[in-house]
């Protein structure tokens, strides 16, 4: 639509990209050097890069165990979100008497910060006997209100005639969701997967309270724990930051084209 100035635009975007990437570089640089990091001025390039900080982290923290815990919780959250949110969103596309009330309830639930409800939430989890279990860790994350509305919007964008035709053919509601709505709402699914993954992967307060056993800790907890406990070997701290971020970044880079393209293109079609 607009022509001209591609160089100016590239220049601006390159500066923006540099700002976005610099923190990554700075932390990585610190992770692979051994200089006294409190010395001034810092060096721009790593001097004598070495991998030993990573080795230290590997042996100080049960990294594979934390990774496994994080993966399990995230997978549960992703499956929960994709399935439960689709169900709820489908229900919301129907007309029923209490619908206004339900929507209002969901919208106001969105406004309750989870951190502020942690003690009652903990007591409830204790009551149903899920403390220190994967299910207990994942349960509050199994359904997300924002994602329900994303599904709802996608379902509503599916041409009404298609659903009607399916219903005329005598398809059950389950089948309508599975065979008509979901295949047409791929971007919504992708968004659900990614957001559920990000939110569960990063959740910090809840696992902190709910896990009792060191074997149940997830990566963010490992990171926070490392922060206070190994602070005298700060190079190792940044090595650990790199190790914690790597899996998430890898998954994101592999999924991002589907995610971004799906989201933008899919939305235009609707």
């Amino acid at each position: 639509m607009r022509r001209g100035f591609p160089w100016a635009r590239h220049a601006v975007l390159i500066v923006v990209s540099a700002i976005m990437l610099l923190p990554f570089y700075w932390v990585f640089k610190t992770a692979i050097t051994n200089e006294n990091i409190y010395a001034f001025p810092p060096r721009l390039l790593p001097q004598d890069p070495h991998p030993y900080n990573f080795v230290d982290v590997w042996y100080l923290i049960p990294f594979p165990r934390y990774l496994l815990n994080s993966v399990i919780v995230s997978v549960m959250a992703v499956i929960g979100n994709v399935v439960l949110n689709a169900m709820a969103a489908y229900a919301l596309t129907q007309n029923f008497r209490a619908k206004k009330l339900v929507v209002l309830l969901l919208l106001s639930c969105m406004l309750i910060p989870f951190q502020a409800t942690i003690i009652p939430a903990y007591l409830i989890t204790a009551r149903i006997g899920l403390l220190n279990t994967y299910l207990g860790l994942a349960l509050p994350l199994l359904s997300t209100i924002v994602c329900i509305f994303i599904y709802k919007a996608a379902f509503e964008a599916v041409p009404r005639s298609l659903v009607e035709a399916a219903r005329m053919d005598g398809l059950s509601e389950w089948r309508i969701i599975a065979h008509v709505l979901l295949p047409l709402s791929r971007p919504a699914i992708a968004t659900n997967v990614i957001l559920a993954f990000i939110w569960s992967w990063n959740s910090f307060m809840w696992p902190l309270i709910v896990t009792r056993d060191a074997n149940m800790q997830t990566l963010p907890l490992g990171l926070a724990r490392f922060l206070s406990y190994m602070e005298d070997t700060t190079g190792a701290l940044y090595a650990f930051v790199c190790m914690v971020l790597a899996p998430g970044i890898l998954v994101f880079l592999m999924a991002q084209s589907a995610f971004i393209r799906g989201l933008t293109h899919g939305a235009t079609k609707g």
């Binding site: 969901l106 639930c109 309750i112 409800t117 942690i118 009652p120 939430a121 409830i124 349960l139 209100i145």
Partner: peptide, 8 residues
């Protein structure tokens, strides 16, 4: 939501 938002 009831368990983790409304009741708390």
């Amino acid at each position: 939501f009831l368990l983790y938002r409304v009741i708390p």
